[in-house]
Design a binder for these strands. Structure first.
Ligand SMILES: [Mg+2]
Ligand SMILES: [Mg+2]
Length: 217
RNA sequence: ACAU
DNA sequence: GCATGT
């Protein structure tokens, strides 16, 4: 039989030392950012509880203990990607017809204040999303804001930026020649510059439409 | 299927 | 329902 364990809940509905997992779990379930860990005996548990989570964690991290023995933070509190970073900009593209008349814009994520906007007589949704991202990157570099994140809802455009290449299928002809030259300029920018700003996926299903959305769907 |  | 993309 395994020896009975003790459960410290530093932060939860009712913090304290618990002698059974089900009761400890009650204290952390539904508590955002709960801090807790199990201990092999009562003395260690009570000492850790009295020291407080911060002090205990510091010591634990400075030691060669296995990762799994560090104190826990409830997963639902961790997901940085689950929280909208307000200090950021958001971009989006739209077209009427695809391919069709295309435009893109960048706005402040909070307040939706427009930062840039461009329109083209013919383009695709994905080209627009791609150009919007490069426009945002160049703009933030000029503003010396290399850490400000950029939100996009386009998986495709994120991939093209990573590749440094706009992998469009749009026909290149007289009607698209100017757009293609813009694309080549954008690709050249990516080749000559380092992408420093985090490019983050906007979670439309969770958060609703991206702030830069044109609202025409 | 997923993201537009 | 159509199209752009991985
Ligand atoms: Mg979009
Ligand atoms: Mg949109």
């Amino acid at each position: 039989m395994a020896k009975k364990k003790y459960y410290v809940v530093w932060m939860g509905h009712v913090p304290g030392v618990y002698t059974a997992w089900p009761t400890a779990k009650q204290q952390i379930d539904g508590y955002k950012g709960a801090k807790y860990k199990s201990f092999p005996d009562r003395a260690q548990a009570e000492a850790a509880f009295r020291r407080g989570f911060g002090s205990y964690l510091k010591q634990s991290l400075g030691t060669k203990a296995s990762k799994s023995s560090h104190p826990r933070t409830r997963p639902s509190a961790v997901p940085s990607s689950e929280t909208i970073i307000g200090k950021s900009i958001s971009v989006d593209a739209a077209c009427s017809g695809n391919p069709g008349k295309m435009e893109y814009q960048g706005v402040t994520t909070v307040g939706k204040r427009q930062i840039f906007h461009q329109a083209f007589p013919l383009g695709t949704n994905n080209i627009g999303e791609f150009l919007a991202l490069v426009h945002a990157l160049a703009f933030l570099q000029k503003q010396e804001q290399p850490d400000l994140p950029i939100y996009t809802d386009s998986k495709i455009a994120m991939g093209w930026i990573k590749k440094g290449k706009c992998k469009t299928t749009l026909v290149r002809n007289a009607k698209t020649e100017l757009l293609y030259q813009t694309i080549e300029k954008a690709e050249a920018w990516l080749k000559e510059n380092t992408v420093t700003n985090p490019i983050l996926k906007w979670k439309t299903k969770v958060w609703g439409e991206i702030p830069a959305d044109f609202g025409r769907k």
